[in-house]
C-alpha cells in the first residue's frame, strides 16, 4: 500500500511543478522572446521599483491584470515602441504559479558572492 501512496504523491508533486513551469514558459517566455528587453532586465526594473519579494509579485500581478502605461516600470521609449501588453486571461492561480517561477529564476538572493 505504502509504495503506491508514495508513487501517487511523487507524480502529483511532479505534475504541479511541471504545470507551474508550463505556466511561466508558455505564457511569459513565449511572448517576451520577441521583445528586445530580456525577462532578466525587466525583473531588475521591478526589483528596483518594488524592492522585496512580496511587493514585486504584487506589483507584477496587478500590472498583468490591469496593464496601463502609467504604472509600467518600463521606459516611455519602450512603451511607445512596443505598446502596453494585453490584459491577462490567466487565472489568479496560474499567475501566482508563473510569478513564483519568475521570482525563483531571477532573484538576487543567494546569487551574490
Amino acid at each position: 500500500m505504502k509504495p503506491i501512496l508514495v508513487a501517487v504523491l511523487l507524480i502529483s508533486g511532479l505534475s504541479t511543478h511541471l504545470s507551474s513551469a508550463d505556466a511561466y514558459e508558455r505564457h511569459c517566455v513565449e511572448c517576451h522572446k520577441e521583445l528586445p528587453t530580456s525577462l532578466q532586465r525587466m525583473f531588475m526594473r521591478y526589483l528596483l521599483v518594488y524592492g522585496g519579494e512580496e511587493n514585486v509579485k504584487a506589483g507584477l500581478k496587478h500590472y498583468l491584470k490591469y496593464p496601463i502605461k502609467e504604472i509600467s516600470v518600463m521606459s516611455d521609449l519602450f512603451t511607445d515602441n512596443y505598446g502596453i501588453k494585453k490584459k491577462t486571461t490567466l487565472s489568479d492561480r496560474q499567475i501566482d504559479e508563473a510569478l513564483e517561477r519568475y521570482w525563483e529564476r531571477f532573484k538576487v538572493l543567494d546569487k551574490l558572492k
Binding site: L47, L48, G51, G52, V56, V108, L109
Partner: peptide, 8 residues
C-alpha cells in the same frame, strides 16, 4: 530610495 538589487 531606489532599491538596487532589491535593497531597502
Amino acid at each position: 530610495d531606489e532599491f538596487y538589487l532589491g535593497t531597502k
